[in-house]
Design a protein around this nucleic acid. Structure first.
Lengths: 201, 201
DNA sequence: CCTACCGATCGGTAGG
DNA sequence: CCTACCGATCGGTAGG
């Protein structure tokens, strides 16, 4: 047995909430996916809301684990690559994470605004300071709105992964990887000065 | 009486579907918002699915009305401004439209991929051709992936408006308008060559 | 556009 | 972790 039953419940709930939404996913459906009965599920998570909270917390905790070392490991353009690369890798590795987050943004805007504020504000401040320092050094575009830029890049990646299945069909030539590449290019181009030559480095 | 009852039903359904999702919105709730009984609602729209389809169709039809004249009215950077401006204006005017669309992307990915393909593919082809022509003329960045760029800009605007309430709280200084401005700046910078000086024109 | 009603499914509990 | 069960709400119908 690799996973404990609570872990299996969290995995199944994350996938199903992302696919069908919170209201569209019955506890019965999650229990079936795990292979237990509904009251057994409610023994591990005392209510459907408690389960939702646990699923969401697990997705967000990843960034507290990974951001500190990521920010210290590199500077300048290397730090940009490390950050955007980690975000793209995390969400593209399992798009259910992006869809779950996005559904929460839509289902519980006030609660998620508070939660994101508490969770992301310290990180956003740090990133925005990097941007402003880069602007002062003449490396980054002066017209960048630091906080809004960071927020927009997060939205672009999470939203882009969450809706890749829809927008990827809009043309014959554009695959998931191409969309991710274009998102990364857009984020980079909107930030750095004179990056036309090095954007494919 | 300004609106017919079916129009009032569509308005209420759009707002409530956007706020609470399709599964989270009962026909009773919509009927209450309009001020009629549930069976009366089902007289105008024979099922909940039929109502959803009508709401969605109304949002998408706008673009068939507005895109032809918009594309003919201007060229180059003026056309970019006209297009992005219209998209931002339409969704920012009533963010429920953006949230409704995004929920459909998540709730019915396969159906929406088909629907968006049928609906947007012709327009995307035209826009992508504009991009390629601009690249050939040396006005637009050669590293732009035309189709992926257009899809990403649509996602950035719709997703940005749909989640503005969440990301707008991440810092004290960034309002809804600032986020929209930064999205527009990002889309422009990722497309045009040497637009550092004219981006505030 | 209404009252009255139905079968199905929901989240959750009792009790073991 | 299970069987058995409950009140509430769901989308939809009958009949006018």
């Amino acid at each position: 047995m690799i996973n404990t039953i609570p872990d299996e419940i969290l995995d199944a709930a994350n996938t199903l909430f992302a696919q069908r939404g919170y209201d569209g996913t019955s506890l019965q459906l999650i229990a079936d996916a795990v292979g237990i009965r509904k009251p057994s599920l409610l023994y591990h998570f005392s209510s459907k809301e408690v389960l939702r909270d646990a699923v969401l917390a697990r997705v967000m905790e990843h960034w507290n684990d990974v951001l500190p070392s990521l920010l210290n490991a590199a500077t300048g353009e290397h730090r940009f690559d490390a950050l955007v690369g980690e975000m793209v890798a995390f969400f593209a590795d399992d798009p259910s994470r992006a869809r779950l987050l996005y559904r929460e943004f839509l289902d519980r805007p006030a609660e998620m605004a508070t939660r994101m504020h508490e969770f992301l504000s310290p990180w956003i401040s740090i990133l925005a300071d990097y941007v402003r320092r880069g602007q002062a050094e003449g490396l980054l575009r002066p017209d960048v709105d630091a906080e809004a830029y960071v927020a927009n890049v997060i939205q672009m990646i999470v939203g882009g992964v969450a809706t890749a299945h829809v927008f990827g069909v809009l043309n014959s030539g554009s695959s998931f990887d191409q969309q991710i590449k274009e998102i990364t290019r857009t984020a980079r181009t909107a930030l750095f000065i004179d990056n036309l030559e090095i954007s494919h480095g």
